[in-house]
């Protein structure tokens, strides 16, 4: 598979990364270099092989339903680039 300029623009959009038009072409080259190298995985017959779900051999841990945290609005907001009355503030979102 070869990555084209439109693919790069599309995934940059999906990943919410502003990509200057001048960087699209070089990125196409870099990604194709990497994906060509990754192509070698196609040599392997993976038919019937289950994808790895976890290397950890144990049951999923579960917690009890008790309130142990969360009442810390000041600490939560301390790193916020923009906040007001304990709300995070962002440019208006139109629904």
């Amino acid at each position: 598979m070869t990555v084209g300029k439109d693919d790069v623009r599309k995934i940059a959009k999906l990943a919410r990364l502003a990509l200057d038009e001048s960087r699209v072409e070089p990125m196409v080259g870099e990604l194709n270099g990497i994906f060509q190298w990754v192509e070698q995985l196609n040599e392997v017959n993976v038919e019937g092989v289950p994808p790895l779900t976890s290397v950890v051999e144990q049951r999923l841990k579960m917690r009890d339903d008790v309130v142990t945290e969360g009442d810390a609005a000041n600490a939560l907001m301390a790193n916020a680039p923009s906040g007001e009355d304990h709300f995070f503030v962002v440019p208006k979102v139109v629904e």
Binding site: R16, L17, A18, L76, N79, A80, P81, S82, F88, V90, P91, K92, V93
Partner: peptide
């Protein structure tokens, strides 16, 4: 750029802020 970390200055909308 919403709850912590670097936020670009003067975003025109939320997508611009993210990108």
């Amino acid at each position: 750029g919403v709850r912590y970390g670097h936020r670009a200055s003067g975003p025109k909308d939320i997508v611009d802020l993210y990108e």
